[in-house]
C-alpha cells in the first residue's frame, strides 16, 4: 500500500459520490451515460468474483479491499437503477448510442489472447481490466454530442480519470519496490490505454476550469 494507491481509491470513491450527488440533487440523469455505468457494473462483476473465495479477514488489506469492492458494486448498481428506473424519463437515450458490443467483443478477444493466466477466473479478471480501460468511451461520446457539460458531470469524469492515473503511479512505485509485482502486464497495458483515453478530456477540463467557464467539448 502506498500513497498513490490510497489517493486513487479515494478519487474513485469521490467520483461515485459526485455522480450520485448530481443525480439525486437535480433529480435527473441528463448527461450521464447509462452504457458506461452498465459497463462498469460488468467490470466489477467479472473482477470481484474472488468475493466468493473468502479470505476477507486475512489481513487489513483484504478487509479494506472487500469493503471497497462491495461499495463499488452496490453504488454502481444503484446508479444503473437510477438511470433505468427512477430517472429514466430524463435519460439521454438518443445521444447515448455508442456501440457497446464492439467494446465487449474487443475486451473478450484480448482477454482470451492475453490473459494474465489461462484459468476461467484469470480470463474474466483480464477481461474486466481491458473493459474498464474503454468503459468511459460511451460517456465521452455522449458529452461530445450534447456539447456543454454540467460542472458536476465534468468533475465526475475528471476524478474517474485521475483515479486511474494514480493507479499508474502506484504501479510504477510497486515496480521498483515489489519484485513479485513486475509481471502484471495486463494491468500495465489496460491502465495506460485507459489513462490516455482521458488525455483529451483533461486538456479541455483544465482549460475551461482556468477560465472559470462550464466545459464544452468540441
Amino acid at each position: 500500500m502506498n500513497v498513490f494507491r490510497i489517493a486513487g481509491d479515494l478519487l474513485h470513491c469521490i467520483s461515485i459520490f459526485i455522480l450520485l450527488h448530481k443525480m439525486r440533487k437535480t433529480r435527473t440523469c441528463t448527461g450521464i451515460s447509462r452504457k458506461t455505468l452498465e459497463l462498469y457494473a460488468i467490470v466489477f462483476l467479472t473482477r470481484y468474483l474472488d468475493l466468493f473465495t473468502g479470505g476477507y479477514f486475512d489481513s487489513a488489506l483484504s478487509l479494506y479491499n472487500t469493503v471497497l469492492k462491495l461499495l463499488f458494486l452496490a453504488s454502481t448498481f444503484y446508479c444503473v437503477y437510477l438511470l433505468r428506473v427512477k430517472y429514466r424519463h430524463t435519460y439521454d437515450r438518443s445521444h447515448d448510442t455508442f456501440r457497446v458490443p464492439f467494446l465487449l467483443g474487443a475486451a473478450a478477444v484480448l482477454a482470451f489472447i492475453f490473459p494474465q493466466r489461462y484459468t476461467i477466473l484469470e480470463i474474466l479478471w483480464s477481461f474486466s481490466q481491458y473493459l474498464e480501460a474503454v468503459a468511459i468511451l460511451p460517456q465521452l461520446l455522449l458529452l461530445q454530442r450534447t456539447g456543454e457539460v454540467e460542472n458536476l458531470t465534468s468533475h465526475y469524469i475528471f476524478c474517474l480519470g485521475a483515479y486511474r492515473g494514480c493507479y499508474v503511479l502506484n504501479w510504477i512505485w510497486r515496480f521498483f519496490t515489489d519484485s513479485t509485482y513486475r509481471g502484471q502486464y495486463v494491468t500495465w497495458t489496460a491502465g495506460l490505454i485507459q489513462t490516455s483515453l482521458y488525455a483529451d478530456f483533461f486538456y479541455y477540463y483544465l482549460k475551461y476550469k482556468k477560465q472559470g467557464r462550464a466545459l464544452k467539448l468540441p
Binding site: R117, N170, Y181, G183
Partner: peptide, 10 residues
Amino acid sequence: SNMAHKHDEL
C-alpha cells in the same frame, strides 16, 4: 511466481 498473480488491488 504465484505471488505475481495475486490480485490485491481494486
